[in-house]
């Protein structure tokens, strides 16, 4: 697959990929780059509107709940759990890629299964959070939370929150679907026949990107 990297190699004189990766992986990188611009545009427009506003709701007041804890004031705890789940599923993904390099099919199955479990756990957390906020009266076009300075807030806050976490959640969902498809192929023996597990690397790149976006969403909505 990869050719040996030597210092004097003429990468652009033809005969091999000047990027030293397969076509599929390179295109996945380019797709992720375009996706990064999409998320970047969303987050920057959020930032612009927030800079434009004289005041903004306090995330520690809005995101204060934890499942089963009633009215207990627990800012950041639930979202930290979600972050932990997503980081953990990124680790199991990278372990699956690693097992693929070793051509250890059993280990690939194990780590892919854990990655899927992590993805579903994250989506369940998000479903709970959205439902909880919805019952508090928050939705697109509706914002029950007041600004940190006590004034009535516009719906910008909820609109951006649901749009951006929703778009991220959509990425997680399609990531889980892709992971399930790949796992089915591993179980069927498709990659064993093909002689390599590179497909795991491609969906792995996508999965890590989803984790990467979450790192920024976490900071922009819950910390700042």
């Amino acid at each position: 697959m990869d050719t040996a990297v030597t210092a004097k190699k003429k990468w652009w004189s033809g005969g091999y990929s000047p990027f030293n990766v397969s076509y599929g992986k390179l295109m996945m990188w380019y797709f992720l780059m375009s996706d990064a611009f999409t998320f970047g545009a969303l987050l920057i427009s959020y930032g612009t509107i927030r800079f434009m506003s004289t005041s903004w709701p306090d995330p520690n007041e809005v995101f204060r709940s934890f499942p089963g804890m009633g009215e207990a004031h627990m800012p950041l705890v639930f979202v930290s759990l979600m972050t932990f789940i997503l980081i953990m599923s990124s680790v199991t993904m990278v372990l699956a890629v690693h097992a693929g390099h070793m051509r250890d099919r059993k280990a690939v199955v194990k780590w892919m299964a854990w990655t899927i479990v992590g993805g579903i756990a994250f989506l369940s957390c998000q479903a709970w959070e959205w439902t909880h906020l919805f019952h508090e009266g928050a939705w697109w076009g509706r914002n029950p939370f007041s600004n940190i300075n006590g004034t009535v807030a516009s719906t910008n806050f909820t609109n951006f929150f649901f749009t951006i976490t929703g778009f991220h959640g959509l990425h997680v969902t399609s990531g889980v679907v892709l992971n399930i498809v790949i796992l089915a192929n591993v179980l069927k023996g498709t990659y064993e026949e093909r002689g390599h597990y590179e497909m795991i690397e491609k969906v792995g790149l996508y999965w890590h990107f989803v984790d990467l976006v979450w790192v920024f969403v976490f900071t922009c909505f819950y910390l700042l």
Binding site: I44, S45, G47, T48, I49, R50, F51, M52, S53, T54
Partner: peptide, 10 residues
């Protein structure tokens, strides 16, 4: 550019 724009709007 965009954050500076937002700030000047504010």
């Amino acid at each position: 550019a965009f954050l500076a724009d937002g700030d000047s709007w504010k």
